[in-house]
């Protein structure tokens, strides 16, 4: 029965700091929705976000939910300690996940031993609320 304040202060990992362009991404994650920018004019999808469509420069950028499914494009397992918040979880897996809709993003693969992760493994999103204001999209193997 942890007090939310205690839980919050116990979270020792970096909390993301949204930019003007990325704020909708983080706000949607709070609602457990993974969204990606999409251009209403040309249909292009990309990530990380920009102010204008990088393909046609339209300002008609909308954030559209994606399926949350993708594949591990590549992954690494951190053994060396770079941050005290992650020290006790080593080795942990950081991956580039290629979403089925195209965009690629940095995340973690969880729910599997780091040395059992493989490139091109099918994964799906899981949401992890880390603070009052922030939720992370992580991935676990499908099935």
């Amino acid at each position: 029965m942890s007090d939310p304040q205690t839980t919050k202060s116990a979270y020792a990992k970096p909390i993301p700091v949204p930019s003007h362009e990325s704020r909708p991404f983080w706000e949607a994650l709070r609602q457990h929705k993974l969204t990606m920018p999409k251009c209403s004019a040309c249909g292009h999808r990309w990530f990380p976000p920009t102010l204008l469509c990088p393909s046609c420069r339209s300002a008609e950028v909308v954030w559209e939910p994606v399926s949350g499914r993708g594949k591990v494009f590549s992954f690494v397992n951190f053994h060396r300690n770079y941050h005290k918040g992650f020290a006790d979880e080593r080795p942990y897996c950081v991956a580039v996940v290629a979403l089925d809709e195209g965009p690629r993003m940095i995340s973690n693969v969880i729910g599997i031993a780091p040395d059992e992760v493989r490139c091109d493994m099918a994964v799906e999103v899981v949401y992890e609320d880390i603070a009052e204001t922030a939720t992370l999209a992580k991935f676990k193997p499908v099935g």
Partner: peptide, 23 residues
């Protein structure tokens, strides 16, 4: 960076190169 990396424990120049090696 303050997003799209550190929150997932993604640090240091070694990591992107290790992604390349793994792929």
């Amino acid at each position: 960076p303050r997003e799209f990396g550190p929150e997932h424990g993604y640090f240091a120049a070694v990591a992107p190169h290790a992604f390349g090696a793994r792929r």
